[in-house]
Design a binder for these strands. Structure first.
Lengths: 321, 321
DNA sequence: TTGTAAGCGTTATCAA
DNA sequence: TTGATAACGCTTACAA
């Protein structure tokens, strides 16, 4: 492996001069510098990150931690993160799974953006206590080294329920996420508030887990109890797709017997027929804002809590009752 | 930051003893070892990766390089990679974009799995020359440090065309990928061979770029030229979805006027109506095999070229002519 | 403007 | 069974 020493030897200078030249330090003579650079290129010299990190104590790498790699869901979010980070000379790496949690304490990454249900809040707070900078997208954590960028869940769930009510629905099922999910809890709260303001409404909550299969199961229950047209608000699109699939295989029709709305605006929902109504937000912006906040945190700048706004997307899965 | 020195001091032993104990070296007294371990835990000691990597010259991290983060396409593939790697105490990180190419030469990762059209073959060969271990999924590269795990493109494209022919189609459009794409070239070759064996067939090739928009454009052309029912083989599902969308917005019907088959079996194609016929393969296995091959390469073991087999998935997007 | 040398936190060799 | 100590490749005071 060619090291800084080899470059120094070939250039007939000391390694410190090479280091200065390589890092663009102005105190080294312009000619010497360009000669060194030329030699470095010629020898195919690449600095060893481990050695550099040991001294500099930063790697210019940010990690994004996700629950899993599945789902078109993450594409735009990650793209948003990456664009901002790259602009600031940081690289983004994407990780999933317990084992990769070591990257933070071992200082392989300079900070992390977390959207990972398997990362416990205790663990995150511990890391923050050790000085690591974190941005979380799926919970609220009060710590000087942690910032959160959250969806406006309450507005979104409110919009969804209001839409159903406007369309004349008074019998509404809610398919929730896991009971410990921050997003699910917030959306559920907004659902209740909106319904309270619009009594009387017959509301039934079915517990789901944000996965497609739980939507399918919910649909079975709903169809068993069926007596008249009902509306279903799934707290995410994944489950709405589950409902959609299950209903498609039955005698019932989405948008006629069962009116359906989801949350997230996954691309998949554009292809269903009828198209599933949902709550949209810019995933790209979410990622970009998360990155910006993390960089500010790393730079020890002041920062406020940012929120990502949402809008309603109507679809033929919901019609007038 | 608490280092090995602090642990040594508190335990009243030398740092080398601590290092041995931490790494489970048997020559250190069991009691001493457990005492050291206890103290390390108590002090919240975490080894610094940079220092370790500097000595060991390996990080136990493997990088997967993708063209972009979009697409549900990658989820299972990455999951397959991760499971194998984790089992062998390696971590997987996912990267995209030119900037992240530095991770390999800077020795932040021990090897890479590449499915990234933006990574040039020259660049990969250069890295291999420098001793880096690579597995490529989207091209063929002859180098002792590179192994390839490829789809059986020829079989897949052959199956697709034969299916169309069996259904009585003799007027067939092919929507290709970018001209320099290995997958596109291989699939195209198989298309031609299969057609040659089944003359006469009227074949029109429309160049696409593997993206949805190019499928939409191809559909426009096809509909303009329409005189009788035709079959369309898109060399990937993404473009098939483009064709699907464009046709849906027209007077024409998929599976009636325009018969459609894709390649990749993306989840999205399960939701279209009619469902789009496609070529399937286990993405999970593809990722797993790629990881296994890379680990063998790193261990300098002998290895053969592996191939991922494909099957035909029929769908209502293709009917008898 | 350049060179010397200390030090970053480990691992691993060699002695004790 | 343990402890000194020399690396690993780089950055950065400080000296020349």
């Amino acid at each position: 492996m060619v090291s800084i020493k080899d470059v120094a030897k070939k250039a007939g200078v000391s390694i410190s001069t090479v280091s200065y030249a390589l890092n663009g330090n102005t105190k080294v003579n312009a000619e010497t510098a360009s000669r060194i650079l030329a030699i470095a290129k010629e020898l195919n010299y690449i600095p060893n990150a481990a050695a550099r990190n040991l001294k500099r104590r930063e790697t210019k790498i940010i990690g994004a931690f996700l629950t899993d790699f599945k789902g078109a869901f993450y594409g735009e979010l990650l793209q948003g993160m990456k664009e901002v980070l790259n602009k600031h000379d940081y690289d983004l790496i994407v990780c999933s799974g317990r084992q990769s949690h070591r990257l933070l304490p071992e200082k392989i990454i300079d900070g992390a953006i977390v959207l990972d249900a398997f990362f416990t809040s205790e663990e995150l707070l511990l890391l923050a206590d050790r000085g690591h900078k974190l941005v979380v997208l799926d919970r609220e954590l009060k710590h000087p080294n942690i910032n959160q960028v959250l969806l406006d869940n309450k507005a979104g769930a409110g919009l969804a329920v209001e839409y159903l009510i406007e369309q004349g629905h008074r019998k509404i099922y809610i398919v929730s996420g896991p009971p410990d999910s921050f997003d699910s809890i917030q959306r559920l709260q907004a659902v209740k508030q909106t319904m309270d303001r619009n009594q009387p409404i017959e509301c039934t909550i079915i517990q789901g887990d944000f996965r497609k299969s739980s939507g399918e199961q919910a649909a079975q229950k709903i169809m068993e109890d069926y007596t008249e047209p009902v509306a279903v608000f799934c707290l995410n699109d994944e489950m709405a797709l589950g409902v959609y699939s299950a209903v498609q295989q039955s005698e019932f029709r989405i948008g006629e017997h069962i009116h359906l709305i989801g949350f997230d605006n996954m691309e998949l929902t554009h292809y269903t027929q009828p198209r599933i109504a949902t709550i949209d937000y810019s995933k790209h912006k979410w990622g970009a804002v998360a990155s910006e906040q993390l960089l500010k945190l790393i730079a020890s700048e002041e920062l406020d809590t940012e929120r990502i706004y949402v809008t309603l997307i109507k679809g033929d899965s919901v019609h007038q009752k």
